[in-house]
């Protein structure tokens, strides 16, 4: 619905061997963490390892793979979520980078012949990679 809102400008930051970015929900209402079907994140075409990703929202940090079980926690529509993972080898700190995020999102009240509707929203923006002090 609002995919170009996902990547929040000015939020790409490296700290040691980790990198994080802030994302907004591409939908109009709060959704449970269990609606997050997956995140695919690349920097200059290098994938941030899916196994290394964590998700921080509303004061809770979880491995991305654990979100599916958490239908008791909510991503409010005005809240940012911080995604963090291992900085891919080959991505130099500093300077501008081509950042792409794909977010799978289940919409829990819409079911079709194909099951619960699963959207795949994409955003891509050039971003400065800041290095945390």
């Amino acid at each position: 619905m609002l995919p170009d809102r996902m990547i929040e400008p000015g939020t790409l930051e490296a700290a040691g061997d980790r990198v994080r970015i802030s994302i907004r929900m591409p939908w109009y209402r709060a959704l449970p963490f269990s609606s997050v079907a997956g995140v695919t994140w690349t920097i200059d075409g290098h994938e941030v390892s899916a196994d290394s990703l964590t998700w921080t929202c509303d004061g809770t940090t979880l491995p991305l793979a654990a979100l599916g079980e958490r239908h008791d926690l909510w991503w409010y529509v005005l809240d940012s979520a911080v995604v963090e993972g291992d900085l891919p080898a080959g991505v130099a700190a500093g300077g501008e980078h081509d950042v792409a995020i794909a977010l799978g999102l289940y919409i829990p009240y819409i079911t079709t012949d194909l099951g619960v509707l699963r959207l795949e929203e994409r955003d891509r923006k050039p971003m400065q990679l800041e290095v945390a002090a």
């Binding site: 209402r29 449970p32 269990s34 599916g68 079980e69 239908h71 289940y106 919409i107 829990p108 009240y109 819409i110 079911t111 619960v116 509707l117």
Partner: peptide, 12 residues
């Protein structure tokens, strides 16, 4: 209101 029947990943 929303009738979120698909709230869970393991089942409706």
């Amino acid at each position: 209101a929303n009738a979120d029947a698909g709230l869970r990943r393991d089942r409706m």
